[in-house]
Amino acid sequence: MLRVLERADLVADGGRIRVYIGAESEDFRMITNPHEHDSAIMKDLLKFLKALGLEMVNQAEYDEEFDTEDNIITYLCEREPLVAEWL
C-alpha cells in the first residue's frame, strides 16, 4: 500500500492523534497528545496503520521526543501490510 501512497496527513481523535506519511523521504511518524487522546481510538488507528504496512518503531531504540506543544513524537517503520481475506 505504501508503494502507492506517497504522502498523507491523517488526523484522528479530533486532532489529538496525527500521522504523517512521507514515503519518498521515508518519514513516518505519529504525533500524540499524551494526556487527552482516546486509547481505544489509538488502538484502532494502530490496527489501521498495520494494515497499511506501518508499525511503531521500538521506543527503546531512541529517546522520547516531543514537539513544541509537548505532544509525543512516535516513529513508524514499514512492515509487510496485512492481506485482506475476501470471501
Rank of each mutant, 00 (worst) to 15 (best):
L46K: 02
H35K: 12
Y20D: 09
G53A: 15
D44M: 08
M56N: 07
E26I: 06
D27R: 02
G53K: 08
L46H: 13
A23V: 07
I31R: 10
A23W: 12
I21P: 13
L54T: 10
K47I: 14
N58V: 00
I41R: 05
R18L: 10
K47Y: 14
V19P: 08
V19I: 12
A51T: 02
R18I: 06
I41M: 09
D38W: 05
R29N: 03
L52H: 01
N58R: 10
T32Q: 01
R18S: 11
R18D: 08
T32P: 09
G53I: 12
H37A: 11
L49H: 04
Y20E: 05
M56I: 04
R16N: 04
H35Y: 10
Y20H: 07
S39I: 08
I21F: 07
N33Y: 14
Q59C: 09
I21Q: 03
K47E: 12
N33E: 15
R18M: 12
Q59A: 12
G53Y: 09
K50L: 06
N33R: 13
D44C: 01
H37F: 12
L54S: 11
H37V: 12
R16W: 04
E26S: 12
M56A: 05
F48N: 00
D44L: 09
E24F: 13
K47M: 11
R29T: 04
E26D: 01
I17V: 14
F48R: 03
M30V: 02
T32G: 09
K43M: 06
N33Q: 14
M30C: 01
I41L: 04
L49V: 02
E26W: 06
G22Q: 06
R18G: 04
D38S: 07
S39N: 07
N33D: 15
E26R: 13
K43N: 06
N58S: 13
K43I: 00
L46M: 02
L46D: 07
I17D: 09
G53T: 14
D38H: 09
P34D: 11
K43F: 10
Q59T: 10
F28L: 12
K50N: 00
M30R: 00
E55N: 08
I41S: 02
L49N: 03
L54F: 14
S39C: 06
S39M: 05
I41E: 11
I41F: 00
M56D: 07
L45S: 08
S39D: 03
D38I: 06
L54Q: 10
L49Q: 01
K47V: 14
L46E: 00
I21S: 00
R16K: 11
A40K: 15
L52T: 09
R29L: 03
E55Y: 13
I21C: 07
S25E: 13
G53L: 15
H35W: 05
I17T: 08
L49C: 04
G22W: 07
E55Q: 03
K50H: 01
M30Y: 01
F48E: 02
A40P: 14
A40V: 15
M56P: 00
R18Y: 02
A40I: 15
I21K: 02
N58Q: 10
